[in-house]
Design a protein around this nucleic acid. Sequence first.
DNA 1: GCACAAAGAAAGCGCGCGCTTGCTATCTTT
DNA 2: AAAGATAGCAAGCGCGCGCTTTCTTTGTGC
Lengths: 215, 215
Amino acid sequence: MSASTGKRSQAERRAHSIARLVDATIDSLAADGYARTTTSAICRSAQLSQGALFRHFASRVELIALATEEVSRRHLALLSEKLLAVRETRSADPIRALVLTMRSQARSPEHAAWHEVMVAARSDHELHALVAPTLQAFEQSLLQAVEEVLALPIQARGKERTRVGTIMLSLMHLFDSEAMTSAIYRNPRLEDDRADWLCDVLRNELDALYRVTAS
Amino acid sequence: MSASTGKRSQAERRAHSIARLVDATIDSLAADGYARTTTSAICRSAQLSQGALFRHFASRVELIALATEEVSRRHLALLSEKLLAVRETRSADPIRALVLTMRSQARSPEHAAWHEVMVAARSDHELHALVAPTLQAFEQSLLQAVEEVLALPIQARGKERTRVGTIMLSLMHLFDSEAMTSAIYRNPRLEDDRADWLCDVLRNELDALYRVTAS
DNA sequence: GCACAAAGAAAGCGCGCGCTTGCTATCTTT
DNA sequence: AAAGATAGCAAGCGCGCGCTTTCTTTGTGC
């Protein structure tokens, strides 16, 4: 008997519906933006009624808040996976692979959803209060993940370690803003120049780091 | 006879009302975000009726589009002014002054308004079509202004000149994203580390540039 | 097996949105 | 000064929003 026709417990049905709503919310945030992520659009996408949505969530922002937690998890998991792949794969140009990984991450749907929530939280105080802890934890986790994956191989400590975190977070910011404006500016040549420049910058950084850790 | 009580021509009244509406729109975009920049909020702030607004603009997005043009102008004027001040003032640390200028620019209300329009245009096709030319021209003007103000003193040509543009636009992007997340993350230490790092990067760049232009 | 609780659908409610209408007041043209 | 054009206001219209209510279906504890 298939899962769809078979009997399911209330807990299973509940968890399944919530998951569908969260998925639909994330998809809508990434594709249509915060303002167009309405309860009716979410329910249409999740194939559930509005009554069902408000059975599980007290308000729209509460659902958005849970979706934001899930976005953080997925964002982090995706990036960690990519960064580990960069470290494991013996690339001819690992610095370039690293830079392009950060760029692709900033262009992902997960990141677009994150960005929409960030912007909306700036002027929606209720949303701000609900998602601020999640987003702050996200930044810390990102910092930690990046330092763990990248700083270990060069055995850097203290100041050098935090510097790597600062740089990678800055890379994320840069590509975040670039991705947001990309569809308007449509200037791939500039974007490639930027990637090239960042590769140079990171190579300089790495040289400096090796000099420190070698002494 | 004062300007407010004195008789004014239709053209003057028209221009004055439009200017008030544009100002109110920009203020609202910066303070309350795109979604909360409603026609009623704009009219309340401009002290005009909705009928008056729709006498001058066919739709809300049309007003937003005109406001976006004004935002571009102000943004550009403000930055040029700051950059010239940096160049004229004999600072002990001109690089740091430059970096902090870019950061303060990204934290300005003008930039916040620009960001709101950018994000909204991603998922609003009508707005996108109306503001894309303005925003593209803005990027080009920014590039030009930055190159004019900064590249001249070191007499760079061709490749070096475009590289300066790429870097400054990247700085703008970085601080754009940082400013957007600043109220959530509340991590001034990281932001200062970032500024320090960018000063180092720019010093390296400048060294390289001088090496090229000297040979 | 039966009373009860939880999940879900359908319809509807109040509200604020973008925008229109009908009108008056103010300038402009002749 | 008359006649037409323009600026501006107050009221209201249709619509889609977040959310609630009412009712039916489905799983659960005794």
